[in-house]
């Protein structure tokens, strides 16, 4: 019955891809804060597990046969609420979370301490007024934080045993960095988007990360957030979301945009717009990008999915009768969408 109720609505003429309901994970705890996936190895078997977070705890879910799931472990956190899960690519038995009130105040690792004793632990990575954080390849984490007088941007690494290793300082721009993305296809290149709508490019192969260039996105779409970056044919392509964009006649109501930058000149051009489905009222609230797939929760309570290369909306999950959608995340591949509701329910869809 649940599958039938939550069947995605395909838009007219866009029937190449679709979302198929797979499973529902229901935790007894309240409001879902975030959801993610992590590779987890225990008792000699390695599986892609789901991690769900509410304000006071984080749960690890293990797949069973026939699309069923079992809650394996719950980390109870302290008084500071969980704000987000920070996915770490290519890691196993390690979850990173950000905690805070209005903004991130600390970052913690949650990990399996010993597979033999099946014991779990958590450790503090960083504290401060943290504005943005991203998990990088090779068990690294980049973050931006502000003190009263300056901004600090840095990378910390984690050893196999869960200890934080020496950090790396990145040259900060004047304005606050609000999001990061690794540049696919260019080792040691990292981009960030700032509070005044610039894209900052770093090289992180030295002890001090060089700030290579800063390029302006343009004033039409303020407060752009970078989700993904890749290099192709001498250009830097950045996927941006626009939580504060206004509707226009030419572009509709844009949720995501692919922009091509020439890093040598700083000039840019918009390549593709992914707008809200025609006739769909509301705005972009929050979303996630994996490969060429983007998903976003809209103010209407629906989740929309786009093919970023085509600029087409390919599927729309209407608000569930029991509650609006609150979270949309891709699993480690774009083949699976994790959709969270405000009451803590998480639904898995095959895409």
């Amino acid at each position: 019955d649940a599958a039938e109720e939550l069947a995605p609505v395909l838009l007219d003429g866009l029937r190449e891809e679709s979302l198929q309901f797979v499973s529902k994970l229901k935790d007894s705890s309240s409001c879902a804060v975030d959801v993610s996936t992590v590779w987890w190895e225990a008792a000699g078997s390695r599986a892609l597990c789901v991690v769900t977070a509410c304000e006071s705890s984080v749960c690890l879910w293990q797949p069973l046969a026939s699309d069923h799931w079992r809650k394996v472990y719950t980390w109870q956190l302290g008084e500071i609420p969980v704000i987000q899960i920070v996915p770490l690519p290519d890691t196993c038995n390690l979850v990173c979370i950000a905690l805070g009130d209005l903004e991130i105040g600390e970052i913690r690792w949650l990990l399996l301490y010993s597979s033999e004793s099946d014991s779990f632990k958590q450790s503090l990575v960083k504290t401060g007024n943290i504005k943005a954080v991203l998990g990088l390849q090779d068990r690294r984490l980049v973050s931006s934080s502000r003190t009263a007088h300056e901004q600090q941007v840095g990378i910390v690494s984690l050893s196999e045993t869960g200890r934080s290793k020496d950090g790396q300082t990145l040259m900060p721009p004047e304005e606050t960095v609000l999001a990061f993305a690794e540049v696919e296809g260019v080792r040691d290149a990292l981009v960030g988007t700032t509070a005044v709508n610039s894209v900052v490019l770093w090289s992180v192969n030295l002890k001090t990360g060089q700030l290579l260039t800063k390029m302006h996105v343009g004033y039409s779409y303020p407060a752009s957030i970078c989700h993904r970056a890749y290099s192709d044919s001498g250009l830097l392509f950045v996927v941006l979301s626009h939580p504060h964009a206004k509707e226009s006649e030419s572009c509709g109501n844009p949720a995501f945009r692919v922009v091509a930058f020439n890093p040598r000149t700083g000039r840019s051009t918009g390549v593709m717009f992914s707008s809200l489905p025609p006739g769909h009222a509301g705005r972009y609230l929050e979303g996630d990008v994996k490969d060429a797939c983007a998903a976003a929760v809209l103010t209407s309570g629906a989740i929309a999915v786009w093919d970023l290369l085509l600029g087409h909306c390919t599927a729309l999950l209407p608000p569930d009768p029991e509650g609006a959608w609150a979270l949309a995340r891709w699993a480690t591949t774009s083949a699976c969408l994790l959709a969270g509701q405000q009451d803590g329910t998480v639904c898995l869809y095959r895409y």
Partner: peptide, 23 residues
Amino acid sequence: CSESDLGPISLNWFEELSAEAPP
């Protein structure tokens, strides 16, 4: 995207910018 819009394009932009940037 054309060079007239974006200026001269270099396939080695990352190496070139890294060499030019202050350490």
